[in-house]
């Protein structure tokens, strides 16, 4: 039985030690600090009312607690209690609590249906059969050189920080599955390699939601949507994001030609 070191003078020293322990692991360490104190600092910054107003925006007041929650460093109960403590009326914390509930919900789905984690729950509602989707993640996506500037930016962020805003996760998932017609499983596996909060239930079921194998219609987005939510922080110029620069009607007929424009109303 080999006891490993637990005392390190710095995070650099710790990272170097882990690199030696795991020569097979790819990439570099990132700046998100592990441990209860770091989680408590993030918890202290939670602002439920601002969260409700701004959470959809790239620079909105999201909590960034997901990696701590995923690894049990804080519980959903503790986050909810904290959220209720810092608002005058419980309703002001409802949006945040509902998002926490999404995690609880996905875990319950997994507990009931463990076999759903890697298999299509329902057929795609895209006009395409599962067999028509690629099996592997194309290398340009893995490497962040799709030629779509905003997506390449998000991919870089995922790889360097191990974190992505919920909207950016939805964009990348929709791009992989619907713009590139690759099975959601390939994208889900890729996310799980990189996300610090990587969680089989939250991740794979969200991918299935985007893909439409666990929802009534495929999720897609266009450049206008990215501009609205990330326009301040990301390159959203049409000339650097041609593939996304289209109306939803155009996208529907381009991406789902067999549906005859019937993807459903957003």
């Amino acid at each position: 039985m080999e006891r490993l070191r637990t005392d390190f003078a710095s995070r650099e020293e710790l990272s170097a030690y882990i690199r030696e322990l795991t020569p097979w692991a790819l990439g570099e360490a990132c700046s998100t600090e592990g441990g209860r104190s770091a989680a408590q600092r993030a918890l202290a910054r939670v602002q439920p009312a601002a969260y409700a107003r701004t959470r959809n925006f790239g620079d909105g007041q999201v909590t960034r607690l997901s990696a701590y929650i995923r690894h049990g460093v804080v519980s959903l109960n503790e986050v909810r209690n904290r959220a209720l403590e810092c608002v005058p009326r419980a309703e002001d914390a409802e949006k945040l609590i509902q998002e926490l509930a999404w995690r609880d919900y996905w875990q319950r789905v997994r507990a009931e249906h463990p076999q759903w984690m890697w298999s299509d729950i329902e057929p795609y509602k895209t006009g395409f059969d599962a067999a028509e989707y690629g099996l592997e993640l194309p290398p340009d996506i893995a490497e962040g050189r799709t030629g779509v500037a905003c997506l390449d930016y998000f991919i870089g962020e995922l790889k360097v920080t191990g974190y992505l805003h919920n909207h950016a996760r939805m964009y990348l998932a929709a791009y992989v599955v619907h713009f590139r017609r690759v099975r959601w499983q390939a994208g889900a596996k890729w996310f799980l390699e990189h996300l610090l909060d990587g969680d089989l239930a939250s991740n794979n079921l969200s991918w299935q939601w985007v893909a439409s194998t666990f929802s009534n219609k495929p999720y897609v987005f266009n450049l206008e949507n990215v501009t609205r939510y990330f326009g301040k922080t990301v390159d959203v110029r049409p000339e650097s994001n041609r593939e996304l620069d289209a109306s939803y009607e155009e996208l529907d007929s381009r991406l789902f030609p067999r549906l005859g424009g019937m993807r459903g109303v957003r």
Partner: peptide
């Protein structure tokens, strides 16, 4: 290694274990 995690997550998890005052055994 079966999990396929990249180094950043391994470092994060290890740091959580140290912070909790656990003995880490290989």
């Amino acid at each position: 290694s079966e999990q396929g995690w990249t180094l950043k997550r391994l470092v994060f998890v290890y740091e959580c274990a140290c912070a909790m005052g656990a003995e880490v055994v290989r």
